[in-house]
C-alpha cells in the first residue's frame, strides 16, 4: 500500500470520527433567510453607491480639467489667479486642519 493511502486510512481511523462528532455537537446556527437577502441587497447598494461616486468624481475631474486647459490656452492671467487661489486654499486648509491639532494637544501635557 502506498504511503499516501496509508496516511488516509490512518486519518480516517484516528481523527475523522472525532471531527464528525464535533460537527454533530457544534451545529452552526444558520441566520434566517431575510438576513441573507438583506446582506445581498446591502452589498449591492454599496457597490452601486461606490460606482456612482466614482462616476461623479471622474465627471467633476473632467469638468475642472477642461476649464483649466481652456483657461491656460485663452486666458492666462485668470488661469494664474485660479492656480494661486487654489494653492492659498490648500495651504489654508492644511494649517487650519493640522495647526489646530498641535495647539489643542498642548494644554493636555
Amino acid at each position: 500500500m502506498r504511503e499516501r493511502d496509508r496516511d488516509e486510512l490512518w486519518f480516517h481511523s484516528k481523527i475523522k470520527g472525532a471531527l464528525d462528532r464535533m460537527e454533530e455537537l457544534h451545529e452552526p446556527g444558520v441566520p434566517p433567510e431575510w438576513w441573507f437577502k438583506a446582506l445581498v441587497e446591502e452589498r449591492r447598494r454599496l457597490k452601486r453607491t461606490l460606482w456612482r461616486d466614482l462616476g461623479l468624481f471622474w465627471l467633476a475631474s473632467f469638468a475642472v480639467l477642461s476649464v483649466m486647459f481652456w483657461l491656460l490656452n485663452y486666458d492666462l492671467p485668470l488661469f494664474a489667479v485660479l492656480q494661486a487661489a487654489g494653492l492659498a486654499g490648500a495651504l489654508w486648509f492644511v494649517f487650519r486642519r493640522f495647526g489646530k491639532r498641535v495647539k489643542r494637544d498642548w494644554p493636555n501635557r
Binding site: E27, P28, V30, E33, F36, K37, L39, V40
Partner: peptide, 11 residues
C-alpha cells in the same frame, strides 16, 4: 437566488 444559495451552503 444568491441569498438562497448562500443560506444553503452556510452550515
Amino acid at each position: 437566488a444568491l441569498a438562497a444559495l448562500l443560506r444553503e451552503h452556510y452550515p
